[in-house]
């Protein structure tokens, strides 16, 4: 942990969508290894766009314009030499709306691995078990791994989507509101597993609420209109924000 180099470094990043919406304006952020980093702000502040840029899912939005750099382990991810597929295996993403792929629970968990060319049954089984345990889902589904993933409840689906990303053993996990639509109990389960997961992974998360952000963050950045207003450690940002706008948002005066 003596290595001061950031895991991900975002430098002078701008992004404009095909319809000319300016989503991000000059973002600069450093995210350290094994950090749970929170991106929060009102809707349309650019949080999800920023997440989607980090594993280049933004490549999919037609006519999008991008400027600036994101360095992953010190090398730029937008360079032509980068293998996007490999990048997405190392920087994995879980979406706000949990969408199991058509198929069984087991299929969902092994999908990424099989696409990466892994065929060994024993390794697959082991990864399935481990990732389900990490996502706190193992006990609930271990007896029905080969039944349809659509039969799971909303909270279970969300954890399934988390588990299928973990199965790839990525270095960074991007979580876009992983507790949207979850009841308080499931939310607590997911938040607890986050604390264990950050021992092994770097996590960047868009939270469900400011309260959640304050509960789980190591460090957080407040975004507004595509700009970073303030970055700070959990104590500083949520207890003693420097910027008036951050304070207003954190205390619930707007947003």
């Amino acid at each position: 942990m003596s290595n001061p180099k950031p895991k991900l470094s975002i430098q002078n990043l701008f992004f404009t969508y095909g319809d000319e919406t300016e989503a991000l304006r000059n973002i600069n952020l450093d995210i350290m290894e094994n950090e749970l980093f929170i991106l929060f702000g009102p809707s349309r502040s650019g949080k999800s766009t920023l997440l989607r840029l980090m594993n280049r899912l933004s490549d999919l939005s037609e006519g999008g314009q991008r400027q600036g750099k994101i360095l992953f382990n010190g090398s730029g991810i937008f360079s032509r030499k980068v293998d996007v597929i490999n990048l997405r295996r190392r920087i994995s993403m879980v979406f706000a709306i949990p969408t199991p792929l058509p198929g069984t629970i087991y299929d969902n968990l092994t999908y990424g691995l099989k696409m990466a060319g892994m065929r060994d049954k024993a390794t697959l089984d082991e990864r399935v078990a481990r990732s389900l345990q990490q996502a706190a889902l193992w006990d609930e589904v271990k007896d029905r791994l080969h039944t349809s993933a659509f039969a799971l409840s909303g909270g279970q689906k969300q954890r399934l989507c988390l588990a299928r990303s973990l199965a790839l053993e990525p270095e960074v996990i991007l979580l876009d509101n992983p507790t949207s639509g979850l009841d308080p109990i499931s939310t607590t389960i997911v938040e607890q597993s986050l604390h264990e997961l950050k021992q092994q992974y770097t996590i960047i998360m868009v939270p469900h609420s400011v309260q959640q952000a304050a509960r789980v963050a190591d460090k957080a950045a407040f975004l507004l209109d595509g700009q970073v207003i303030e970055v700070g450690r959990q104590k500083d940002l949520f207890v003693n924000p420097k910027d008036q706008r951050t304070e207003d948002y954190v205390t619930g005066r707007f947003g």
């Binding site: 490999n86 295996r89 879980v94 696409m115 990466a116």
Partner: peptide
């Protein structure tokens, strides 16, 4: 979401379409 989910798991576009 199916396509996003598949691509985010490191599947190629062709794998996503086919699988």
């Amino acid at each position: 979401e199916y396509r996003d989910g598949s691509l985010a798991l490191g599947a190629t576009q062709w794998q996503t379409i086919w699988r």
